[in-house]
Computed example of a mutant assay.
Amino acid sequence: MANEVTTAPQDTRKPAFWYGLPVGYMSLDLLPPAERLMEIINQLRGLPEQERDEADRALRLYAGIISLLNTNRVQECALGVHPDDAGGFTTSVFTVSTLPTSGSAKLVVAGLAGSAADGPDEGMRPLELPCGVGFLAEKRSPAPRSSRHPERSDAASSHIWQGTVAVAAPSTPELIVLQMVTPDLDSADDYRNILLGIARTLTFTDPARAMAADEDREPEAPTGASAAMRNDFG
């Protein structure tokens, strides 16, 4: 069964939508408590000088990434590690963000989905989800290079696969954007399926309430978000 994840706009922090996150993904703490940060800082002070400098740089990098994610309205960032056919591991990054629109988010999605259906771009197509109409866009783009260690970028994958699913929020002028990125181009089909599986579990109805309502009924096949999560992730 998937780990259930709830998230919300930064200004309210109340759950506005829910989705399932499959096994193999670890979420970053985008709002680390001040007590935890002070605990880490105190631990750093006890390290030898060289190790303290390295750990301090890592902590500053983490803080910078968290700040950047929050600035871009990212609600979830999860790192995925999965075994591959060669006996090694393949990695990915999954994010969920909210994108405000100037008008109706549903009209924006409908327009993009309609243009995708009629246009020549095979990288975007309309998508029918249990929570509503959306669209799937995917592309391959050059991988970002390290400015500190450019020599390491040559050995790494030169391109990444990026898949994006966007769905209109029902009660706010926002798009819910799910995005999957991986440097493993050979596994793009697998990661597309994972992204679509997560998108199919997206719901704007609290699953806890749905489960409570199901318990009051006669036993039957699961429906709604719980059924989507079970079908997509077991």
Rank of each mutant, 00 (worst) to 15 (best):
A2E: 05
N3M: 05
V5L: 07
V5D: 05
T6V: 05
T6F: 07
A8V: 02
P9H: 02
Q10L: 12
D11Q: 02
P15M: 06
A16Y: 03
F17Y: 13
W18T: 01
W18S: 01
W18Q: 00
W18H: 11
Y19D: 00
L21I: 06
L21S: 01
G24Q: 08
R36I: 13
R36C: 07
E39H: 12
I40N: 05
I41M: 13
I41W: 02
I41V: 14
R45N: 15
G46R: 05
G46K: 08
G46T: 01
L47K: 11
L47V: 01
P48V: 09
E49G: 04
E51W: 01
R52N: 09
D53F: 00
D53M: 07
R57L: 15
A63P: 08
G64R: 08
I66L: 14
S67H: 12
L68V: 11
L69G: 10
N70I: 04
N70C: 09
T71L: 12
T71Q: 14
Q75G: 14
Q75F: 05
A78E: 11
A78V: 10
V81K: 08
H82E: 08
A86M: 03
G87P: 02
F94K: 00
F94A: 04
V96F: 01
S97P: 02
S97H: 05
L99W: 03
P100T: 09
T101S: 04
T101I: 01
S102D: 14
S102A: 14
G103W: 08
A105V: 06
L107W: 08
V109R: 06
A110T: 11
A110Y: 05
G111I: 04
L112F: 11
G114Y: 09
A116F: 06
D118A: 15
P126W: 08
L127Q: 12
P130Q: 08
P130Y: 01
C131D: 00
C131T: 04
G132L: 09
G134R: 03
F135V: 04
L136G: 11
A137V: 06
R140G: 04
A143H: 02
S146K: 02
R148W: 08
R148I: 07
A156Q: 11
S157W: 02
S158R: 11
S158G: 13
H159R: 09
I160R: 13
G163D: 07
T164A: 08
T164E: 15
V165Y: 07
A166Y: 04
A166D: 12
A166F: 06
A166R: 10
A168L: 11
A169P: 00
P170N: 13
P170E: 12
E174N: 05
E174G: 01
Q179T: 15
Q179G: 01
P183R: 09
D184S: 14
D186M: 03
S187T: 03
D189A: 15
D190K: 07
N193W: 07
N193E: 15
N193P: 02
I194L: 14
L196V: 13
I198G: 06
R200Y: 03
T203Q: 01
D206N: 14
P207S: 10
A213M: 12
E215S: 12
D216Y: 07
R217Q: 15
P219T: 09
P222M: 10
T223Y: 05
A227R: 14
A228S: 15
M229R: 12
M229W: 06
R230Q: 13
R230P: 00
R230E: 15
D232T: 05
F233V: 00
G234K: 06
